[in-house]
């Protein structure tokens, strides 16, 4: 994840408390989704950014996961995101996200 984004995630986790923070990812690929999810839970796996060695354990979802869709306004999701369900490999993304959450999410 971009170094500046890592810095902001870390700042907000400190500011509002990690239990009050949810990260929503919009990556088009399972690999990139997992990388971002790992960064905000276990720490930066690339050892480059401010989250290196920092295990925030944040709640993290992909925007197309059912848990998220259940809470979004249907019409807004339809307008803003739905088309991408035909583009991305959602099953693979869900699998990766669930795996990261079960291992590293603390809240």
């Amino acid at each position: 994840m971009d170094l500046e984004n890592q810095r902001r995630v870390k700042e907000f986790a400190e500011q509002v408390g990690p239990e009050n923070l949810v990260v929503i990812i919009g990556a088009g690929e399972a690999g990139a989704s997992a990388l971002a999810a790992e960064t905000v839970t276990a720490g930066d796996p690339t050892y480059a950014g401010p989250l290196t060695g920092v295990s925030l354990g944040l709640k993290v979802y992909h925007v197309c996961e059912d848990e998220m869709k259940a809470e979004f306004d249907e019409a807004i999701y339809e307008d803003q995101v739905s088309m991408m369900e035909m583009v991305i490999d959602l099953d693979e993304i869900v699998e990766q996200m669930e795996s990261i959450r079960s291992q590293f999410t603390k809240y």
Binding site: E29, G31, L35, V87
Partner: peptide, 14 residues
């Protein structure tokens, strides 16, 4: 390999 997928294919799929 960077997890960013096949960008031309993603765009064509869109």
């Amino acid at each position: 390999p960077a997890g960013a997928g096949d960008v031309p294919v993603s765009n064509l799929k869109m």
